[in-house]
Nucleic acid binder design. Structure first.
Lengths: 355, 355
DNA sequence: TTGTAAGCGTTATCAC
DNA sequence: GTGATAACGCTTACAA
């Protein structure tokens, strides 16, 4: 069996308390003793039993991370970052997939709490849940902070992206490049925070006096999920949808996509149709997926600063764990437009501008 | 504070042991009592403290998952699957990123063990570590199973992919489609299990009497990692590399890529150069990434059956946790070639075959 | 069928 | 400075 402080105490012919204190560098213990104990502990390969420790002081140095579909890149990037940050802070991460469903989220949260997490970070929005539902269901007994792409409409600790701002920047940037006929492509999949992405588009277009209400939106079929949660698109349908769009909007010079996957899809379809990007049409994505960096052309996209969000959320959580309060607090993280090669000056303007 | 069995016992004017047993449905307890206790527990919102339970019976119902770069799709898919399977089995998952480095792996493993995981699943190979190093470093005190793409050269519980078999299938399939000039593209990045992928290629080519030794291999620059572990490619270099290849290998009709990312990259570059896939050149990937399903054309690829691997690994782990033994055991999971549109009969043959 | 009491490995509160 | 001793919340012989 594993070595315990008791074993060490026995060998050293001292008491458990002394060993315990010495190992934690208690200044009350003589320096010599501390040294002796630590040496012995090392020799015997002692490793503290964090469970026992947790039982007495009520802290496990573990946080729980609840998230919908781990396989999504934004999710796994978040998780990776959280793992790193938590580790630096001496915390472990217990993760659980919620499939983005409220009841599973609640269930898993209770699981994790029972397992003794000190705090909870929950990622995902629950679009079909009512505020009342959230209020009652999500009444957790440990400090909790929500993260995601939309504001949760209830008093809680949360950090979320301002998704609109990046879209606005994108529209502004396109405008300055001479674009006037700008459209937004989207796939209305479940749990997707579309409204905030749309609203940025609406606003920015309106500000410029451009046509960008609902008419500026162009919908794609969302495909379907396989049993592992991977989303598959019906590329033939999407292809013809893009084709149709081009026919019906011959004057469109720029396309904003509601997410990078769609943007990459559309990009490849355009290229196949002989439409040059960005010479003929500029394309912009949303999310900041890694793959946008090496598409051809590399995709301009609105990036969600995941690291910043995770940092903020973790700090918030640490804080409320320390003070054991869970007072409502909100932090907004701005998204930002990242310029790459897929967006360019419109041709018309190019021809007008002399070399 | 949280409700404990003691609180319930007090209210019911009975003993803690009765409550404890009743809650766990011990047949020794009168059915009426059980009912009464459970009802009371429910009413008081009792939730068992798994930590306390763990302290006494030495089991936390938690497993640890160690893995390199969480952000990779294969990794996150593995994690997602593991989370689901574990939950079904009543287990939680404590995850930690190892960056694919041996010392961090060891460190994290000890962390997790201290936190009380009942077992460990470790993903990742350690190409630069010697067998001796692994032997000494990886001497864990809890049941452990390794998973990954290569066989660990030491006695342990492991399940790994037979990566060669899928490559062979791919080559066979291409051969049957009339391809003779088949080449393999690869990026030699750290920790990548290239040899097994290569060996499948070598063997299959040799079996068919085709030129497929080292000369059949064509190397791409591996790009670089950002601080988050995302890999970025220098697309311009890759592009010109592909171009150069086409010039120097005008008779090549099929390209096998060592991973899907590379395949998708090459695919887009070929399309941009006006090379039609699959009409002019067939392309095959490796991994089974989701994105291969909706590239244009959808990519034929060698898929790694992640679900199968995780299932196997979990079962193995459960087994050795139950019997508390850690006897060496190996399971091999075959990869398999998945046919999609990116590979097709060679043109020559097409012309010969009458309509 | 139920209750008593010991113990899991640690920390914390007292005395000494 | 150090050592008993009582928690922490639960399980499990052993008694009753």
């Amino acid at each position: 069996m594993a070595v315990t402080i008791y074993d060490i105490a026995e060998v050293l012919e001292t008491s458990r308390s002394t060993v315990s204190r010495a190992l934690r560098n208690d200044s009350k213990i003589a320096l010599a003793t501390r040294k002796r104990v630590k040496k012995q502990a090392l020799e015997m390969g002692y490793r503290p039993n964090l469970l026992a420790r947790a039982l007495v002081n009520g802290k496990t140095q573990t946080i729980g991370f609840l998230t919908g579909s781990v396989i999504l890149e934004v999710t796994s990037a978040t998780m990776a970052k959280l793992g790193d940050i938590a580790r630096e802070g001496g915390y472990g991460v217990h993760m659980a997939d919620t499939k983005g469903e409220l009841d599973l989220t609640v269930k898993q949260a209770h699981e994790l709490i029972a397992r003794g997490v000190d705090g909870l970070i929950i990622r995902g929005c629950f679009p079909e849940a009512t505020v009342e539902q959230l209020q009652t269901e999500l009444d957790f007994s440990v400090p909790t902070v929500f993260i995601g792409g939309v504001r949760m409409p209830l008093p809680c600790q949360q950090v979320y992206y301002d998704q609109a701002i990046g879209v606005k920047q994108a529209v502004d940037s396109l405008y300055e490049l001479g674009h006037r006929q700008i459209h937004m492509f989207f796939m209305p999949w479940k749990g997707w925070e579309k409204e905030t992405r749309f609203s940025g588009f609406y606003e920015a277009m309106a500000e410029r006096g451009l046509d960008g209400g609902r008419e500026g939106l162009y919908e794609f079929p969302p495909g379907h999920l396989d049993e592992d949660g991977h989303r598959f698109f019906d590329i033939d349908v999407c292809f013809s949808r893009t084709k149709k769009f081009l026919k019906s909007h011959p004057d469109c010079t720029a396309i904003l996509c509601s997410d990078d996957k769609l943007a990459l899809l559309v990009l490849s379809h355009l290229v196949h149709m002989g439409v040059r990007v960005p010479e003929d049409i500029s394309v912009v994505g949303f999310d900041g997926m890694a793959a946008t960096a090496y598409s051809l052309p590399p995709l301009s996209t609105v990036v969600l600063p995941i690291g910043e969000m995770v940092h903020t959320a973790f700090d918030l959580l640490m804080d409320s764990m320390k003070n054991n309060n869970n007072q409502p607090k909100e932090v907004v993280i701005p998204s930002k437009f990242l310029v790459r090669r897929s967006a360019e000056q419109v041709r018309i303007r190019k021809e007008v501008t002399p070399g």
